[in-house]
Design a protein around this nucleic acid. Structure first.
Lengths: 202, 202
DNA sequence: CGAAAACCTGACCCGGGGTACAGTAAAAAT
DNA sequence: ATTTTTACTGTACCCCGGGTCAGGTTTTCG
């Protein structure tokens, strides 16, 4: 089991994620975090040597977490069907269901948070946000290549662009959903991506 | 011509927009703005009664500006063709070209900035961000309705969702472009929306 | 049991941020 | 030309945030 220190560290990271998604990185004060975590300033700086250090740890952690999540959803999709297109359609469906099931508040993404505060974070964090997006591109693109191996698309599209489109709709859908305070918009947008794939390969 | 006060006010708003898009609202200090504008703190508070007041003025201004811009692009599209679908395709094309032409830095959107700092801004600003998105929905939806009047789509899609998809791709495309530092991604994503429309009504 | 390592406390520093306001210069109005 | 309005300047205030540090407590492990 996790040591006491690891638990506190994790707790801080979870609290920080929520704060950053609602308030942004700059407006997330260490005071807020430690108050909610029930520790003191010294305790915070025992775990993280600075606020940026926390942000880096956060990005690293959620990059891994997303990789695992997406891989898992693909695995589940591949158990249901052998057709790459169907697998992709199931993947997006599962993803949309996950998004719908986030109970409290709206879904958010640290990549977007840090991107809109890019001048407030250091180079390592910017690299991590870029790396996350490129992870997703690679993962989605692999599946799209598999689809293309089975049957060509009805019109000529760039595989990377089609892969990025899913990230784009995720990030954009989150913003539009939150801006108008309607959670179902994100789900609908993801399903619209499915429609596009259907027409492209149907 | 604009009075001296109006000019300074505008200058402050322009500087503030850039700062907010790069650093976020919370990290945008009044000191930064007045230094760049060449005035002092007192001068700032002559024009805006608070930082939030500036943010509200900004959102109001850019909501109007976007409305005008989008309307203008539609007008230009309607001069080129009478077919509603072609008009929409031209509109998106013009929009993508505009985005490509922003010389310095990457495109950004205040709606996204404020959305990811929603707990840092007041209710009026949140209402203005929602109103902006709903403006776009109405504008895009009107055009989609015209397309549907001419010919039905090949698959059943919700007109509002299809309208929101353009906002989604815009917002998402901005984030993905900025995150990986490749401006052409946004353009490609917008063109992908065109492809979708093409397949949907082709 | 005892020592070493891990974990945390709480007071303090320092710079910066938003705000207020009294006074001043420049522009506009009469 | 004089008054009035507009557009500021300069300064002082207070709080808040990131970060430091010397020491205290709790775990872990031999």
């Amino acid at each position: 089991m996790a040591s006491k220190g690891e638990q506190t560290r994790m707790k801080l990271m979870e609290i920080a994620e929520q704060h950053i998604l609602q308030n942004g990185f700059s407006a997330t004060s260490i005071d807020d975090l430690i108050t909610e975590a029930g520790i003191t300033k010294g305790g915070f700086f025992y775990h993280f040597k600075s606020k940026h250090d926390l942000a880096q740890a956060l990005m690293r952690h959620y990059r891994e977490k997303d990789e695992l999540l997406f891989s898992d959803l693909f695995l589940r999709a591949r158990e249901l069907t052998d057709d790459p297109l169907q697998q992709m359609l199931v993947f997006v469906k599962l993803l949309s269901e996950m998004m719908a099931e986030i109970e409290d508040l709206h879904p958010g993404c640290l990549v977007a948070s840090f991107t809109y505060e890019s001048h407030q974070v250091n180079e390592e964090i910017r690299e991590l946000t870029a790396a996350s997006i490129l992870d997703w591109r690679r993962l989605f693109r692999e599946q799209i290549d598999r689809i293309n191996d089975v049957r060509p698309p009805n019109i000529d599209v760039d595989a990377d662009t089609l892969a990025d489109m899913l990230s784009t709709i995720l990030e954009g859908g989150i913003i539009v959903s939150r801006a108008v305070n309607q959670k179902d918009i994100l789900v609908r947008q993801l399903l619209e991506y499915r429609n596009y794939l259907g027409l492209l390969y149907g």
